[in-house]
Design a protein around this nucleic acid. Sequence first.
DNA 1: TAGGCCATCTGGTCCT
DNA 2: AGGACCAGATGGCCTA
Length: 241
Amino acid sequence: MPAPLETCLSDLDCASSNSTSDLASFLADEEGSDKLQSLASTSGLSGPARRSAPTISNVPGAQDEEQERRRRRGRARVRSEALLHSLRRSRRVKANDRERNRMHNLNAALDALRSVLPSFPDDTKLTKIETLRFAYNYIWALAETLRLADQGLPGGSARERLLPPQCVPCLPGPPSPASDAESWGSGAASSPCATVASPLSDPSSPSTSEDFTYGSGDPLFSFPGLPKDLLHTTPCFIPYH
DNA sequence: TAGGCCATCTGGTCCT
DNA sequence: AGGACCAGATGGCCTA
């Protein structure tokens, strides 16, 4: 069973140099290449060594010696390039692995975020962008609810409003940074946010609900714990399916 | 079949 | 130097 490429290449690092460019010069050197060849052959990276031990019958003359040296250099270069390619390849594979892992972590974090957001009645899984937008809205709505509760508005305690019995996620849209209007809205033609004419920088700014509904004009979702006027004063960035 | 969403690969850049 | 992060490209899957 041949040694894995990773092992071979780490051996290679120990044997010579850590940097790719140094490795290249190392490989260009015939002696270095010979070291590599022995490493590669013992680890199964290459085929069996073809060079035979010199015998009396094949001792070359001066010209033959020069020719032989050229052939060796040619073979060394081919081996060098192949091994350099292998090294780059193994680093790329490692980087891919890290990147995959990083994205998995990111997705796990998104799943965790989904799990703390109010769920849809049909358990539809929010897409990534919807999750982020919804979370943004949700946080804003909770904060707004607290603010209104602090002002002593009727409608039960802040806690009751924050945790309605059937929490269906239509949250009034949060204040969107004006400079961020592009990323929230017009960029996504398929998103309900695309229907938002101009995201408000101030949630208390008056507006009409027509601006912020999608499709039929009926709100697809509602957030029963929130005062009605809140729905009418803010854009609704509704995750839509 | 077109469009949306997603996972993965890849090369470049930044950071430690 | 190596890892993290990012954005573009690509291909697969699903749905209207």
